[in-house]
Design a binder for these strands. Structure first.
Lengths: 214, 214
DNA sequence: CGCACAATTGATCACGATCAAAACCAGTGG
DNA sequence: CCACTGGTTTTGATCGTGATCAATTGTGCG
Protein backbone atom coordinates (compact mmCIF):
# COMPACT_ATOMS: atom_id res chain seq x y z
CA UNK A 1 0.00 0.00 0.00
CA UNK A 2 0.97 3.61 0.04
CA UNK A 3 2.47 5.89 -2.51
CA UNK A 4 5.09 4.49 -4.81
CA UNK A 5 7.12 7.29 -6.16
CA UNK A 6 8.92 6.13 -9.24
CA UNK A 7 8.07 2.51 -9.79
CA UNK A 8 4.56 3.25 -11.02
CA UNK A 9 5.35 5.88 -13.56
CA UNK A 10 3.54 5.18 -16.76
CA UNK A 11 6.05 5.05 -19.61
CA UNK A 12 4.12 6.97 -22.21
CA UNK A 13 3.71 9.85 -19.84
CA UNK A 14 7.18 10.71 -18.68
CA UNK A 15 7.61 12.95 -15.70
CA UNK A 16 9.46 16.24 -15.85
CA UNK A 17 13.13 15.65 -15.45
CA UNK A 18 13.46 17.13 -12.00
CA UNK A 19 10.31 15.70 -10.49
CA UNK A 20 12.13 12.80 -8.93
CA UNK A 21 15.58 12.81 -7.47
CA UNK A 22 17.11 9.63 -6.25
CA UNK A 23 18.83 9.37 -2.92
CA UNK A 24 19.27 12.96 -2.08
CA UNK A 25 21.11 13.25 1.18
CA UNK A 26 20.77 15.57 4.16
CA UNK A 27 23.14 15.55 7.14
CA UNK A 28 21.56 15.54 10.57
CA UNK A 29 20.45 18.84 11.93
CA UNK A 30 19.61 20.33 8.54
CA UNK A 31 16.11 20.88 7.20
CA UNK A 32 14.25 19.23 4.34
CA UNK A 33 11.72 22.03 4.13
CA UNK A 34 10.46 24.92 6.22
CA UNK A 35 7.17 25.84 7.74
CA UNK A 36 5.38 28.41 5.62
CA UNK A 37 7.46 27.70 2.55
CA UNK A 38 5.52 27.13 -0.65
CA UNK A 39 4.99 23.40 -0.96
CA UNK A 40 6.17 22.19 -4.33
CA UNK A 41 7.19 18.64 -3.62
CA UNK A 42 6.58 15.63 -1.43
CA UNK A 43 9.40 13.89 0.40
CA UNK A 44 9.72 10.18 0.81
CA UNK A 45 12.09 9.23 3.59
CA UNK A 46 14.21 6.29 2.52
CA UNK A 47 16.52 6.12 5.49
CA UNK A 48 16.88 7.99 8.75
CA UNK A 49 14.58 9.90 11.07
CA UNK A 50 12.99 13.32 10.64
CA UNK A 51 11.34 15.56 13.19
CA UNK A 52 8.54 18.03 12.55
CA UNK A 53 9.01 21.33 14.35
CA UNK A 54 6.72 24.26 14.98
CA UNK A 55 7.36 27.52 16.73
CA UNK A 56 4.55 28.90 18.82
CA UNK A 57 3.72 32.57 19.08
CA UNK A 58 6.42 33.40 21.64
CA UNK A 59 9.08 31.45 19.77
CA UNK A 60 8.69 28.35 21.88
CA UNK A 61 10.00 25.33 20.04
CA UNK A 62 7.57 22.43 19.74
CA UNK A 63 8.40 19.07 18.21
CA UNK A 64 5.07 17.97 16.77
CA UNK A 65 6.06 14.71 15.15
CA UNK A 66 8.67 12.16 14.19
CA UNK A 67 8.84 10.51 10.79
CA UNK A 68 10.61 7.35 9.75
CA UNK A 69 11.83 5.42 6.74
CA UNK A 70 8.98 4.82 4.33
CA UNK A 71 6.93 7.83 5.35
CA UNK A 72 5.87 10.37 2.77
CA UNK A 73 5.70 13.88 4.17
CA UNK A 74 5.25 17.43 3.00
CA UNK A 75 1.60 17.50 1.95
CA UNK A 76 0.69 21.17 1.65
CA UNK A 77 -1.99 22.87 3.68
CA UNK A 78 -3.14 26.03 2.00
CA UNK A 79 -0.31 25.71 -0.48
CA UNK A 80 2.49 25.63 2.06
CA UNK A 81 4.20 23.29 4.48
CA UNK A 82 2.69 23.14 7.91
CA UNK A 83 5.91 22.48 9.81
CA UNK A 84 9.65 22.48 9.44
CA UNK A 85 11.19 19.08 8.76
CA UNK A 86 14.62 18.62 10.30
CA UNK A 87 16.87 15.62 9.90
CA UNK A 88 17.43 13.95 13.27
CA UNK A 89 19.94 11.53 11.83
CA UNK A 90 21.54 11.60 8.42
CA UNK A 91 18.65 11.20 6.01
CA UNK A 92 18.30 9.80 2.53
CA UNK A 93 15.14 10.77 0.69
CA UNK A 94 13.52 11.21 -2.69
CA UNK A 95 11.10 13.87 -3.82
CA UNK A 96 8.12 14.07 -6.07
CA UNK A 97 6.50 17.20 -7.41
CA UNK A 98 3.09 17.86 -5.95
CA UNK A 99 1.70 18.30 -9.45
CA UNK A 100 2.71 14.78 -10.32
CA UNK A 101 1.02 13.48 -7.24
CA UNK A 102 -2.12 15.32 -8.17
CA UNK A 103 -1.94 13.86 -11.64
CA UNK A 104 -1.40 10.39 -10.33
CA UNK A 105 -4.34 10.84 -8.04
CA UNK A 106 -6.58 11.34 -11.02
CA UNK A 107 -5.20 8.35 -12.86
CA UNK A 108 -4.95 5.74 -10.19
CA UNK A 109 -7.51 3.06 -9.61
CA UNK A 110 -7.39 3.38 -5.83
CA UNK A 111 -7.31 7.02 -4.79
CA UNK A 112 -7.90 6.03 -1.19
CA UNK A 113 -4.59 4.31 -0.95
CA UNK A 114 -2.82 7.07 -2.78
CA UNK A 115 -4.33 9.66 -0.51
CA UNK A 116 -3.63 7.81 2.67
CA UNK A 117 -0.23 6.69 1.61
CA UNK A 118 0.69 10.33 1.36
CA UNK A 119 -1.32 11.87 4.12
CA UNK A 120 -1.32 8.94 6.50
CA UNK A 121 2.02 9.56 8.18
CA UNK A 122 1.25 13.17 9.03
CA UNK A 123 -2.24 12.48 10.23
CA UNK A 124 -0.99 9.53 12.20
CA UNK A 125 1.79 11.60 13.73
CA UNK A 126 -0.52 14.33 14.95
CA UNK A 127 -2.93 11.77 16.25
CA UNK A 128 -0.20 9.84 18.01
CA UNK A 129 1.21 12.87 19.74
CA UNK A 130 -2.20 13.93 20.91
CA UNK A 131 -2.69 10.50 22.45
CA UNK A 132 0.77 10.36 24.00
CA UNK A 133 0.57 13.78 25.59
CA UNK A 134 -2.89 12.88 26.79
CA UNK A 135 -1.30 10.30 29.06
CA UNK A 136 -0.65 11.59 32.54
CA UNK A 137 2.45 10.64 34.45
CA UNK A 138 5.85 11.26 32.96
CA UNK A 139 6.91 7.63 33.13
CA UNK A 140 3.79 6.41 31.39
CA UNK A 141 4.14 9.05 28.71
CA UNK A 142 7.74 8.19 27.99
CA UNK A 143 7.11 4.48 28.04
CA UNK A 144 4.27 4.85 25.57
CA UNK A 145 6.55 6.93 23.42
CA UNK A 146 9.27 4.31 23.47
CA UNK A 147 6.82 1.60 22.50
CA UNK A 148 5.59 3.77 19.65
CA UNK A 149 9.07 4.54 18.36
CA UNK A 150 10.12 0.90 18.53
CA UNK A 151 7.13 0.02 16.40
CA UNK A 152 8.26 2.49 13.75
CA UNK A 153 11.87 1.38 13.65
CA UNK A 154 12.88 -1.67 11.74
CA UNK A 155 14.40 -3.50 14.64
CA UNK A 156 11.75 -4.05 17.24
CA UNK A 157 13.87 -5.11 20.17
CA UNK A 158 17.31 -3.90 20.94
CA UNK A 159 16.67 -0.61 19.20
CA UNK A 160 18.73 2.47 19.83
CA UNK A 161 16.85 5.73 20.18
CA UNK A 162 17.77 7.96 17.26
CA UNK A 163 16.75 11.29 18.81
CA UNK A 164 18.30 13.20 21.74
CA UNK A 165 16.44 13.51 25.02
CA UNK A 166 15.83 17.20 24.44
CA UNK A 167 13.74 16.33 21.41
CA UNK A 168 11.80 13.77 23.37
CA UNK A 169 11.14 16.38 26.00
CA UNK A 170 9.94 18.92 23.45
CA UNK A 171 7.78 16.28 21.82
CA UNK A 172 6.16 15.05 25.02
CA UNK A 173 5.87 18.49 26.52
CA UNK A 174 8.16 17.67 29.43
CA UNK A 175 11.40 19.18 30.66
CA UNK A 176 14.72 17.52 29.78
CA UNK A 177 15.29 16.93 33.48
CA UNK A 178 12.11 14.95 33.83
CA UNK A 179 12.93 12.90 30.76
CA UNK A 180 16.36 12.16 32.11
CA UNK A 181 15.05 11.04 35.48
CA UNK A 182 12.50 8.80 33.82
CA UNK A 183 15.25 7.16 31.83
CA UNK A 184 17.24 6.62 34.98
CA UNK A 185 14.26 4.80 36.46
CA UNK A 186 13.93 2.69 33.35
CA UNK A 187 17.63 1.93 33.47
CA UNK A 188 17.43 0.82 37.09
CA UNK A 189 14.53 -1.44 36.18
CA UNK A 190 16.58 -2.96 33.41
CA UNK A 191 14.16 -1.90 30.68
CA UNK A 192 16.76 0.15 28.85
CA UNK A 193 20.50 0.44 28.80
CA UNK A 194 22.29 3.76 28.60
CA UNK A 195 25.54 3.18 26.89
CA UNK A 196 27.00 6.53 26.07
CA UNK A 197 24.73 9.41 27.10
CA UNK A 198 23.52 9.54 23.57
CA UNK A 199 22.92 5.90 22.88
CA UNK A 200 19.91 4.53 24.72
CA UNK A 201 19.15 0.93 23.95
CA UNK A 202 15.73 -0.63 24.43
CA UNK A 203 16.24 -3.94 26.18
CA UNK A 204 12.92 -5.06 27.61
CA UNK A 205 10.10 -3.74 25.47
CA UNK A 206 7.49 -5.83 27.25
CA UNK A 207 8.16 -4.15 30.57
CA UNK A 208 7.99 -0.78 28.92
CA UNK A 209 4.63 -1.42 27.32
CA UNK A 210 3.26 -2.50 30.66
CA UNK A 211 4.40 0.81 32.16
CA UNK A 212 2.88 2.68 29.25
CA UNK A 213 -0.69 1.96 30.30
CA UNK A 214 0.21 2.96 33.83
CA UNK B 1 -12.64 25.71 -1.05
CA UNK B 2 -13.62 22.48 0.55
CA UNK B 3 -15.83 19.65 -0.52
CA UNK B 4 -19.26 20.51 -1.82
CA UNK B 5 -21.48 17.55 -1.46
CA UNK B 6 -24.52 18.02 -3.63
CA UNK B 7 -24.20 21.33 -5.38
CA UNK B 8 -21.49 20.12 -7.72
CA UNK B 9 -23.08 16.91 -8.88
CA UNK B 10 -22.79 16.61 -12.60
CA UNK B 11 -26.28 16.17 -14.07
CA UNK B 12 -25.55 13.50 -16.60
CA UNK B 13 -24.01 11.31 -13.99
CA UNK B 14 -26.62 10.94 -11.28
CA UNK B 15 -25.56 9.57 -7.92
CA UNK B 16 -27.11 6.48 -6.39
CA UNK B 17 -30.33 7.36 -4.69
CA UNK B 18 -29.11 6.91 -1.14
CA UNK B 19 -25.69 8.43 -1.54
CA UNK B 20 -26.87 11.77 -0.23
CA UNK B 21 -29.42 12.39 2.46
CA UNK B 22 -30.46 15.89 3.21
CA UNK B 23 -30.67 17.21 6.70
CA UNK B 24 -30.54 14.05 8.68
CA UNK B 25 -30.82 14.89 12.34
CA UNK B 26 -29.18 13.49 15.45
CA UNK B 27 -30.10 14.54 18.98
CA UNK B 28 -27.26 15.47 21.31
CA UNK B 29 -25.49 12.61 23.00
CA UNK B 30 -26.04 10.15 20.17
CA UNK B 31 -23.38 8.97 17.75
CA UNK B 32 -22.94 9.57 14.04
CA UNK B 33 -20.57 6.65 13.65
CA UNK B 34 -18.42 4.41 15.78
CA UNK B 35 -14.73 3.75 16.01
CA UNK B 36 -13.84 0.54 14.20
CA UNK B 37 -17.04 0.48 12.20
CA UNK B 38 -16.63 -0.06 8.48
CA UNK B 39 -16.47 3.37 6.89
CA UNK B 40 -18.99 3.64 4.08
CA UNK B 41 -19.83 7.31 4.07
CA UNK B 42 -18.55 10.76 4.85
CA UNK B 43 -20.47 13.16 7.06
CA UNK B 44 -20.81 16.84 6.44
CA UNK B 45 -21.87 18.73 9.54
CA UNK B 46 -24.41 21.37 8.60
CA UNK B 47 -25.29 22.57 12.08
CA UNK B 48 -24.17 21.76 15.59
CA UNK B 49 -21.01 20.46 17.20
CA UNK B 50 -19.54 16.95 17.18
CA UNK B 51 -16.86 15.44 19.40
CA UNK B 52 -14.44 12.70 18.43
CA UNK B 53 -13.93 10.11 21.15
CA UNK B 54 -11.40 7.34 21.61
CA UNK B 55 -11.06 4.81 24.36
CA UNK B 56 -7.57 3.92 25.43
CA UNK B 57 -6.45 0.45 26.39
CA UNK B 58 -7.82 0.57 29.94
CA UNK B 59 -11.12 2.05 28.87
CA UNK B 60 -10.11 5.61 29.57
CA UNK B 61 -12.24 8.03 27.64
CA UNK B 62 -10.34 10.55 25.54
CA UNK B 63 -11.91 13.35 23.56
CA UNK B 64 -9.55 13.72 20.63
CA UNK B 65 -11.30 16.43 18.67
CA UNK B 66 -14.20 18.78 18.16
CA UNK B 67 -15.86 19.37 14.80
CA UNK B 68 -18.09 22.21 13.71
CA UNK B 69 -20.55 23.26 11.03
CA UNK B 70 -18.99 22.93 7.60
CA UNK B 71 -16.53 20.19 8.54
CA UNK B 72 -16.49 16.95 6.62
CA UNK B 73 -15.54 14.00 8.79
CA UNK B 74 -15.42 10.24 8.64
CA UNK B 75 -12.51 9.60 6.30
CA UNK B 76 -11.61 5.93 6.72
CA UNK B 77 -8.24 4.71 7.90
CA UNK B 78 -7.71 1.14 6.89
CA UNK B 79 -11.32 0.89 5.83
CA UNK B 80 -12.82 1.93 9.15
CA UNK B 81 -13.52 5.00 11.24
CA UNK B 82 -10.73 6.03 13.55
CA UNK B 83 -12.92 7.44 16.31
CA UNK B 84 -16.48 7.62 17.52
CA UNK B 85 -18.34 10.79 16.54
CA UNK B 86 -20.86 11.92 19.14
CA UNK B 87 -23.23 14.84 18.83
CA UNK B 88 -22.46 17.45 21.47
CA UNK B 89 -25.48 19.51 20.55
CA UNK B 90 -28.33 18.57 18.27
CA UNK B 91 -26.72 18.04 14.89
CA UNK B 92 -27.92 18.32 11.33
CA UNK B 93 -25.75 16.65 8.75
CA UNK B 94 -25.66 15.12 5.29
CA UNK B 95 -23.77 12.08 4.11
CA UNK B 96 -21.97 11.03 1.00
CA UNK B 97 -20.85 7.54 0.09
CA UNK B 98 -17.10 7.08 0.14
CA UNK B 99 -17.26 5.58 -3.35
CA UNK B 100 -18.79 8.74 -4.69
CA UNK B 101 -16.08 10.78 -3.09
CA UNK B 102 -13.47 8.56 -4.67
CA UNK B 103 -15.19 8.99 -7.99
CA UNK B 104 -15.35 12.70 -7.62
CA UNK B 105 -11.69 12.73 -6.75
CA UNK B 106 -10.89 11.27 -10.13
CA UNK B 107 -13.09 13.73 -11.98
CA UNK B 108 -12.34 16.97 -10.29
CA UNK B 109 -9.95 19.55 -11.62
CA UNK B 110 -8.43 20.26 -8.19
CA UNK B 111 -7.84 17.06 -6.25
CA UNK B 112 -5.87 18.95 -3.64
CA UNK B 113 -8.88 20.91 -2.59
CA UNK B 114 -11.10 17.88 -2.65
CA UNK B 115 -8.65 15.94 -0.54
CA UNK B 116 -8.09 18.67 1.97
CA UNK B 117 -11.70 19.66 2.10
CA UNK B 118 -12.39 16.17 3.32
CA UNK B 119 -9.34 15.35 5.34
CA UNK B 120 -8.47 18.83 6.51
CA UNK B 121 -10.77 18.99 9.51
CA UNK B 122 -9.53 15.74 10.97
CA UNK B 123 -5.89 16.49 10.41
CA UNK B 124 -6.41 19.97 11.72
CA UNK B 125 -8.17 18.66 14.80
CA UNK B 126 -5.39 16.25 15.73
CA UNK B 127 -2.83 18.92 15.11
CA UNK B 128 -4.72 21.47 17.16
CA UNK B 129 -5.12 19.18 20.12
CA UNK B 130 -1.46 18.29 20.06
CA UNK B 131 -0.59 21.99 20.16
CA UNK B 132 -3.11 22.82 22.87
CA UNK B 133 -2.06 20.03 25.18
CA UNK B 134 1.52 20.99 24.54
CA UNK B 135 0.83 24.23 26.40
CA UNK B 136 1.77 24.09 30.04
CA UNK B 137 -0.34 25.76 32.66
CA UNK B 138 -4.02 24.98 32.95
CA UNK B 139 -5.11 28.57 32.43
CA UNK B 140 -3.04 28.95 29.29
CA UNK B 141 -4.32 25.67 27.92
CA UNK B 142 -7.94 26.55 28.50
CA UNK B 143 -7.54 30.07 27.18
CA UNK B 144 -5.95 28.77 24.00
CA UNK B 145 -8.78 26.31 23.69
CA UNK B 146 -11.39 29.04 24.06
CA UNK B 147 -9.71 31.14 21.42
CA UNK B 148 -9.64 28.15 19.11
CA UNK B 149 -13.30 27.29 19.63
CA UNK B 150 -14.38 30.89 19.12
CA UNK B 151 -12.58 30.89 15.81
CA UNK B 152 -14.55 27.86 14.71
CA UNK B 153 -17.93 29.14 15.76
CA UNK B 154 -19.81 31.60 13.60
CA UNK B 155 -20.09 34.31 16.20
CA UNK B 156 -16.65 35.36 17.23
CA UNK B 157 -17.43 37.36 20.34
CA UNK B 158 -20.21 36.72 22.72
CA UNK B 159 -20.17 33.03 21.94
CA UNK B 160 -21.61 30.42 24.23
CA UNK B 161 -19.58 27.28 24.75
CA UNK B 162 -21.48 24.37 23.26
CA UNK B 163 -19.73 21.58 25.16
CA UNK B 164 -19.80 20.72 28.87
CA UNK B 165 -16.75 21.26 31.05
CA UNK B 166 -16.25 17.53 31.40
CA UNK B 167 -15.63 17.29 27.68
CA UNK B 168 -13.20 20.18 27.81
CA UNK B 169 -11.38 18.40 30.60
CA UNK B 170 -11.19 15.16 28.65
CA UNK B 171 -10.03 17.04 25.58
CA UNK B 172 -7.33 19.04 27.34
CA UNK B 173 -6.25 16.17 29.53
CA UNK B 174 -7.19 17.97 32.73
CA UNK B 175 -9.57 17.13 35.56
CA UNK B 176 -13.04 18.72 35.65
CA UNK B 177 -12.10 20.42 38.91
CA UNK B 178 -9.16 22.15 37.33
CA UNK B 179 -11.26 23.28 34.39
CA UNK B 180 -13.88 24.65 36.73
CA UNK B 181 -11.36 26.59 38.79
CA UNK B 182 -9.83 28.05 35.66
CA UNK B 183 -13.24 29.26 34.56
CA UNK B 184 -13.79 30.83 37.93
CA UNK B 185 -10.59 32.77 37.46
CA UNK B 186 -11.69 33.86 34.01
CA UNK B 187 -15.03 34.89 35.38
CA UNK B 188 -13.42 36.99 38.11
CA UNK B 189 -11.29 38.65 35.47
CA UNK B 190 -14.38 39.44 33.45
CA UNK B 191 -13.24 37.46 30.42
CA UNK B 192 -16.24 35.14 30.52
CA UNK B 193 -19.67 35.17 32.09
CA UNK B 194 -21.20 32.06 33.63
CA UNK B 195 -24.91 32.39 33.27
CA UNK B 196 -26.42 29.09 34.16
CA UNK B 197 -23.82 26.47 35.03
CA UNK B 198 -24.04 25.20 31.54
CA UNK B 199 -23.99 28.42 29.58
CA UNK B 200 -20.57 30.00 29.54
CA UNK B 201 -20.38 33.15 27.48
CA UNK B 202 -17.17 34.50 26.04
CA UNK B 203 -17.10 38.21 26.76
CA UNK B 204 -13.54 39.44 26.32
CA UNK B 205 -11.78 37.34 23.73
CA UNK B 206 -8.81 39.68 23.58
CA UNK B 207 -7.98 39.12 27.22
CA UNK B 208 -8.29 35.40 26.73
CA UNK B 209 -5.93 35.27 23.79
CA UNK B 210 -3.38 37.21 25.81
CA UNK B 211 -3.61 34.59 28.55
CA UNK B 212 -3.31 31.82 25.97
CA UNK B 213 0.30 32.61 25.21
CA UNK B 214 1.04 32.67 28.92
C1' DC C 1 42.82 21.88 24.23
C1' DG C 2 38.79 24.34 24.76
C1' DC C 3 34.30 25.37 23.24
C1' DA C 4 29.30 24.51 22.99
C1' DC C 5 25.77 21.76 24.01
C1' DA C 6 23.52 17.66 25.92
C1' DA C 7 22.92 15.00 29.91
C1' DT C 8 22.94 14.51 34.83
C1' DT C 9 22.09 15.43 39.70
C1' DG C 10 20.27 17.99 43.63
C1' DA C 11 17.11 21.15 46.12
C1' DT C 12 13.01 23.69 46.34
C1' DC C 13 8.39 25.00 45.14
C1' DA C 14 4.05 25.65 42.68
C1' DC C 15 0.49 23.64 40.39
C1' DG C 16 -2.74 20.33 39.32
C1' DA C 17 -4.38 15.57 40.75
C1' DT C 18 -6.88 13.37 44.02
C1' DC C 19 -10.33 12.50 47.53
C1' DA C 20 -14.60 13.92 49.56
C1' DA C 21 -18.84 16.38 49.74
C1' DA C 22 -22.24 19.68 48.68
C1' DA C 23 -24.84 22.51 45.43
C1' DC C 24 -26.98 22.98 41.19
C1' DC C 25 -29.73 21.69 37.18
C1' DA C 26 -32.68 18.82 33.82
C1' DG C 27 -35.66 15.38 33.14
C1' DT C 28 -39.15 11.97 34.78
C1' DG C 29 -43.02 10.40 36.96
C1' DG C 30 -46.21 10.52 40.74
C1' DC D 1 -46.40 21.16 41.52
C1' DC D 2 -43.24 18.44 44.04
C1' DA D 3 -40.16 14.59 44.91
C1' DC D 4 -36.81 11.82 43.11
C1' DT D 5 -32.82 10.74 40.21
C1' DG D 6 -28.61 11.23 37.59
C1' DG D 7 -25.22 14.00 35.87
C1' DT D 8 -22.56 18.20 35.90
C1' DT D 9 -20.58 21.86 38.33
C1' DT D 10 -18.71 23.77 42.40
C1' DT D 11 -15.92 24.17 46.65
C1' DG D 12 -12.50 22.69 50.05
C1' DA D 13 -8.44 20.15 51.84
C1' DT D 14 -4.42 17.51 51.16
C1' DC D 15 -0.69 15.41 48.62
C1' DG D 16 2.48 14.13 44.92
C1' DT D 17 4.73 15.10 40.91
C1' DG D 18 6.92 17.62 37.61
C1' DA D 19 8.69 22.48 36.80
C1' DT D 20 12.12 25.43 38.05
C1' DC D 21 16.65 27.12 39.44
C1' DA D 22 21.42 26.10 39.84
C1' DA D 23 25.56 23.69 39.09
C1' DT D 24 28.48 19.71 37.48
C1' DT D 25 29.70 16.29 34.39
C1' DG D 26 29.97 14.23 30.02
C1' DT D 27 30.45 14.28 24.87
C1' DG D 28 31.40 15.63 20.17
C1' DC D 29 33.76 18.76 17.36
C1' DG D 30 36.64 22.63 15.55
Amino acid sequence: MGLELAENVIPFRPEPADSRILSTHVPFGHALFWEGEEARQLFKIEAGVVRGVNFSAEGERQVTGFFFAGDVIGLPSGGQYRYTAEAVTDVRYSTKAVDCWTEELRRTAHPDETVFGAIGPELEASYMRSLLIGQQGALARISAFLAYVCGQLDEREDAILPMPQTDIAAYLSLTPETVCRAFRTLKETGAVRIEKHDRIRIVDLARITSLATH
